[in-house]
Design a binder for these strands. Structure first.
Lengths: 278, 278
DNA sequence: AGAAAAATGTTTATTTTTGTTCGATTGAAA
DNA sequence: TTTCAATCGAACAAAAATAAACATTTTTCT
């Protein structure tokens, strides 16, 4: 092709791209940041190149961690349609039914991790509750002690004759959790071998949860535990929520039912978090 | 970061998923957040895809915890017809069945006595628990606050959206009660309008109970309440038990299902205890 | 100019997504 | 309750998109 120097409108947008190839890459990124996603065919037609070339472009940008490829194109890591911001917590019962299969798998895996531990802290949430259920169903060691601000967890473990401690304070009806400053102070007196933490969102930016009150208690668990296990099903990947609870680096082990998406896996690795897929 | 990305505008959505699959998923979520529900056929027609494809989309979104599927479509987790069931089975003990008729009569009578009170303390025991159940089933005033070291009571009242406080400490498995010095100290900070007290024995010598730990908490309730209601079924008359919890004179009102025997009636009268037979 | 390197195009096998059929299940009406 | 139509899911077929291997073109040097 002799007319290789066609510079349509994209030339203005992507001046740094001196070669056609660089112009394409820049335009792809630009479009992603604006619209959230691009399709292979769309780019191919616009730049009069083959689909294969566009795929190679996308592959390169993905390798640089600048986008995520999906079938048919690519989506932005920032406004990818799958990164969801939600600030309304679904009711407990609805959450419990979701992914209950994955949750029990996660529960079993986490349970294996805490075998032999003496003092466990149980956070809120359906996934952690599944862990408590599994623990209660197993034959726990006699000396085991549980600390939790979830009355649901407490009921399960206490009924299984496990020594169970709860903090004092006001009960939040939906979650059946004890929260508030008094509860935080109560548990700030203790140290735990392992904390089992739940969350409503997990991204490279950290661990997220709905309510500030619950987040405060999570912080206690995290700060006062030798080992911090995050139990989170894969639906929470790429979701952020009202409160940022913790850095990735504060988590020792992440247990989930599926491998995290690439950008999260990389961030977890950099934060030195072990990943366990149940 | 809290700008339009939470609730994307219509224009943004149109551009959002240039990848067909992404566009469908985004549109489904958007419609859910706006209208609360979508139907399979509706989406299939709008995007000119088969029903099966829409079902697969919904299945994927459900797996990500973003919606709940129902027959014919899906509903939002926020707006949907969410179940409000209490998923915790009442734990049946032999005691609860005993005199359950008498206990619920006592419960109703005691409930009438505390109407309009702001701050109630609930002791342990099946009779008091029946009172809590009756209270939860009634339509309690919004400002009502419950203090209890019985997790069974707490669970009932908290589920009924009554502000419920529990003390911190170790849980006793059988009673599901929080006891210990910490719990006593926790509740020693408060004052209560009325305490609802249970007991395992009542004689002219006083009020009796089984365990010293539980007795310590009863003392707190008694000492720090303006009015002290003893809820006790007639089978406990003339029985003594391990610990003497209180003098008769410390009780304001005794509620029972039958009149006490003569010597007890006389002692109660001398101690200035009102007697209410339900 | 000519060769090496890089980028792009083409073909083909593989994977992913979507469509279709059909028996099973569900929900509502009779 | 029983019936019946709508809906659902599993299995397989078709279509679209992708990745790999190789061919071709363009660029970048000397």
């Amino acid at each position: 092709m002799t007319d290789s120097s066609i510079y349509p409108t994209q030339e203005k947008l992507a001046k740094r791209g001196r070669t056609p190839a660089q112009a394409r890459l820049a335009a792809i990124l630009d479009r992603l940041n604006q619209g959230g996603s691009v399709s292979v065919t769309e780019i191919a037609e616009e730049f009069q190149v083959s689909d294969m070339t566009v795929r190679r472009d996308l592959a390169e940008l993905e390798a640089q961690g600048l986008l995520e490829r999906v079938h048919g194109g690519a989506v932005s890591l920032q406004h990818g349609p799958l990164t969801v911001i939600d600030d309304v917590e679904p009711l407990f019962e609805a959450r419990r039914r979701l992914n209950s299969d994955a949750k029990s798998r996660i529960a079993e895996a986490a349970l294996a991790l805490v075998a032999g531990q003496q003092t466990l802290a149980f956070d809120l949430g359906t996934t952690v509750l599944a862990g408590a259920r599994a623990l209660a169903a197993s034959d726990p060691a006699p000396g085991l002690r549980i600390f939790t601000n979830s009355l649901r967890v407490a009921q399960l473990t206490a009924a299984a004759s496990i020594q169970t401690y709860v903090p004092g304070g006001l009960i939040q009806p939906g979650e059946m959790s004890v929260t508030g400053q008094g509860a935080v102070e109560d548990f700030s007196r203790y140290y735990f071998d392992t904390a089992l933490i739940g969350a409503s969102g997990l991204t490279p930016d950290g661990v997220f949860d709905y309510s500030p009150e619950e987040a405060a208690m999570k912080s206690v668990y995290i700060q006062r535990s030798s080992r911090r296990i995050l139990m989170i099903d894969s639906s929470k990947f790429r979701r952020i929520s009202t409160v940022r609870v913790a850095d990735l680096s504060q988590i020792s082990i992440m247990v989930s039912d599926a491998a995290p998406p690439p950008e999260l896996a990389q961030a977890l690795e950099e934060a030195n978090v072990s990943i366990l897929v149940a």
